[in-house]
């Protein structure tokens, strides 16, 4: 089992203000994992915020209960991993596994393509009414 050196988790209503809390969790995580190089922090944090924003903007509740955003970020010696979840959301359809970056005039639609460009792997899991995007970045830069 790989040693987890730092970890932050949060779960709350998927509202825009939750994004500011994800930023705060990331800042706190980097304080606890000071060895992570600046470039990796920058790329990974951007991907996590994009994924969380995607949940807040696009997740559709599957019942009368509002969708909740979950973020679970962990740091191991050679890997950053974030599990960004939409609890109580319908399954997004279709799941775009190879998004294309929109052209210059578009004002939206870049989030998933940007995530792809920023991290090493992106996987999607649907389980028990929860959509989870798992982002990983490795190896860490020197």
């Amino acid at each position: 089992m790989t040693e987890v050196l730092a970890r932050r988790t949060m779960r709350q209503a998927a509202r825009p203000q939750a994004i500011e809390d994800v930023h705060a969790e990331l800042d706190s995580l980097w304080d606890a994992a000071s060895f992570v190089p600046d470039m990796d922090r920058m790329t990974f944090a951007t991907a996590v915020i994009e994924a969380a924003s995607n949940v807040v903007q696009h997740a559709v509740p599957e019942s009368t209960e509002p969708v909740e955003l979950g973020v679970d970020i962990s740091v191991t010696p050679a890997r950053l991993e974030a599990r960004v979840s939409a609890f109580g959301a319908v399954c997004p359809d279709p799941i775009d596994t190879d998004p294309v970056m929109p052209g210059g005039e578009a004002e939206s639609g870049r989030g998933l393509a940007l995530i792809r460009a920023l991290v090493t792997t992106v996987t999607f899991k649907r389980q028990d009414g929860t959509n989870t995007w798992i982002l990983s970045k490795s190896p860490l830069h020197d």
């Binding site: 944090a45 915020i49 924003s53 004002e107 939206s108 870049r110 989030g111």
Partner: peptide, 16 residues
Amino acid sequence: AFMDSSGLGALIGCLK
């Protein structure tokens, strides 16, 4: 210090 695709979209809208 930070901009995401929402912020970028706003800049493009403002440019237009």
